[in-house]
Simulated scan of single mutants.
Amino acid sequence: MHGHRPLAPTSAPTIVLRDPRPGDMGWVIRQHGQRYAEEFGWNSDFEALVAEIVAGMMEHHDPAWERGWIAEVNGERADSVFVVRKTAQDTQDAPVAAPPHSPVAFAATHPRRPWPGFGWPLDG
């Protein structure tokens, strides 16, 4: 093989799913605002909505019904997913009818993730 070295095998990424820590929720808001602006041209009103949802979850967190995770790949935040309890008021204000107390999930996926197979759909 004239001067060519075989490629060293690459190791699989280290993926950790963990509870949110201080600073993570601001990152979640930023990721949502930035990604939806880049991909869909949405303005900062959407980022404000995400901030409102995140603040509500942080202020009124019900650990029996709600949970959030931050996914790290090789020690860097990569994704997030949250399941929050939908209230009757949320259902009343929603543009699409949903049963009261049904869970609501939202995720922020890094658009240029270099690791295959990381991420999952939120719908069935």
Rank of each mutant, 00 (worst) to 15 (best):
A78R: 11
D123A: 12
I29Q: 12
E39N: 10
H101T: 07
G124Y: 07
Q34M: 09
F106T: 09
H110Q: 04
P103D: 15
W120A: 13
N74I: 03
E47H: 00
D123S: 12
Q31C: 13
T10N: 02
G3W: 05
W27Y: 05
P20T: 10
P9I: 02
G56S: 06
S11D: 11
L17C: 11
Q92N: 03
H60T: 08
E76W: 00
Q89M: 06
W120R: 08
E59T: 06
G117W: 05
E39W: 05
A105R: 08
P121F: 01
E39D: 10
L17Y: 13
L122G: 11
A107Q: 07
E39C: 08
P95V: 03
E38V: 09
R21N: 01
A12Y: 02
G56V: 02
Q89R: 07
V28C: 12
V16Q: 13
P114Y: 08
A97Y: 07
G68A: 13
A98G: 07
V54F: 01
A12I: 03
G68S: 12
L17I: 14
D24A: 01
R35I: 13
A105V: 07
G26Q: 14
D123F: 12
A37N: 03
T109A: 06
H110S: 04
E72L: 08
I29D: 09
W42F: 15
A88C: 07
V104W: 15
T87G: 04
E72W: 04
I15H: 04
A97Q: 08
R67L: 12
R35S: 13
P95E: 03
G119Q: 09
R67E: 15
R113F: 04
L7P: 02
A108C: 11
V50G: 08
G124L: 09
G124V: 07
H110R: 07
R30A: 03
M25G: 02
H110A: 07
H4M: 11
D79G: 05
G75T: 06
A12Q: 05
W69A: 09
V28W: 00
H2K: 01
A71R: 04
N74M: 00
S102Y: 11
W42C: 07
E76R: 05
P9Y: 01
P63G: 15
P121L: 01
A37Q: 06
A97T: 08
M58E: 14
W65Y: 13
A97F: 08
W69P: 00
A12N: 03
N74C: 02
L7V: 04
I29W: 09
V84Y: 09
F40M: 13
W42A: 08
L7C: 03
G75C: 05
P22R: 13
D19Q: 12
V50N: 08
R5N: 10
Y36W: 15
S11Q: 12
E38R: 12
E47I: 00
W42Y: 15
W120I: 08
F82W: 14
P116L: 05
A78D: 07
R67A: 14
E47N: 00
P22A: 15
H101F: 15
D90H: 06
W115C: 01
A37R: 14
T87C: 06
P6V: 01
R21E: 15
D123K: 10
W42H: 12
A105E: 10
P9N: 04
G41V: 05
A48W: 01
H101I: 02
V16S: 05
D45E: 13
P121I: 00
A71K: 01
F46H: 14
